[in-house]
Amino acid sequence: MRQFEESVEKLLAAVRKHDSVQAFQKAEQHVKELPELERLAHKMKAYQQDAVLFQKIEKDQAASQAGYKADELEQELSRLPVVQDYREKMQDASDLLQYITKTLEEKINKELIDDK
């Protein structure tokens, strides 16, 4: 079991050093340094929650209006270069993690099949 834990730690260290993960962490930090983005995201989530609530109590016009405002804010956020960069870097890091997960899964399944 100790060897497994050491292997996991080595893998985690390698992932943390990977360019795509480093780039994502920098982009994430940049986003966190912009309080206006957080305010807009919070406001968008509040409108989304309002839309759901209004739908539940059958206030269709209010639900539609809140949904529209949430969509408007989401589009505004999506157009910001810092958000586009963040999403791109997040996707790159996510692709890396998916590749690692898929490779591990394939190797584990192969080992299990070979052991039978």
Rank of each mutant, 00 (worst) to 15 (best):
R16Q: 14
Y68M: 12
E6D: 09
I108F: 04
K110Q: 13
K26V: 07
G67S: 06
Q3D: 15
L80I: 01
I57K: 08
V82L: 08
T103M: 09
K45H: 11
Q75G: 15
K56I: 05
V83I: 15
K43S: 12
A93C: 01
Q65K: 13
Q84G: 04
L37K: 05
L80R: 14
A93L: 00
M1S: 15
K10P: 07
E88W: 08
K26C: 03
D95A: 12
A51P: 01
A46P: 02
V82E: 14
L11I: 12
S94F: 08
S7L: 10
Q25E: 15
K116M: 11
D60I: 04
L112G: 00
D95I: 07
M90P: 04
I100K: 10
A13S: 11
A63H: 02
Q98Y: 03
D60Q: 12
A23C: 05
E9R: 07
E72A: 02
R2T: 15
E5F: 05
E5C: 06
Q29T: 11
F4C: 11
A66Q: 00
L40W: 02
S94G: 11
V8Y: 15
L34N: 07
K102G: 05
A14R: 07
Y47Q: 09
Q75T: 08
S94P: 04
D60V: 00
A23D: 13
S78L: 07
I108V: 14
N109T: 05
K107L: 06
K43E: 14
A70F: 01
Q3L: 12
E58W: 06
E36N: 09
K69P: 01
Y68Q: 13
F54H: 04
T101W: 03
R87Q: 12
K107I: 08
E76I: 13
E5K: 09
L73D: 00
D19K: 13
Q29A: 08
N109C: 06
K107H: 07
H30F: 02
E9S: 10
A14Q: 09
R39W: 01
K26Y: 02
E5G: 00
K59F: 02
M1P: 09
A62T: 01
D19L: 06
Q29S: 12
F4V: 10
K43H: 12
S78Y: 03
L97E: 10
Q55Y: 11
A46Q: 06
I100W: 03
S94N: 12
L96E: 09
A70D: 03
D71W: 09
D92R: 14
E28N: 09
D95N: 11
Y86E: 04
L37Q: 03
E106M: 13
Y68F: 15
D85Y: 08
I57D: 00
L11N: 09
E76C: 05
E76K: 10
Y47T: 00
R2C: 13
T101M: 06
E33I: 05
Y86V: 00
E33R: 14
T103D: 13
P35V: 12
E5D: 07
S78P: 01
S20Y: 03
L53C: 05
E111T: 09
D71M: 07
R39H: 09
L97M: 15
N109G: 05
L73G: 05
E28H: 02
H42K: 07
A93I: 02
K89T: 05
K17H: 10
K69I: 04
E33Q: 13
A13W: 07
L34K: 11
Q61K: 11
A93W: 01
M1D: 15
Q55T: 15
R87E: 13
Q29H: 04
K32G: 08
K17R: 14
D95Y: 14
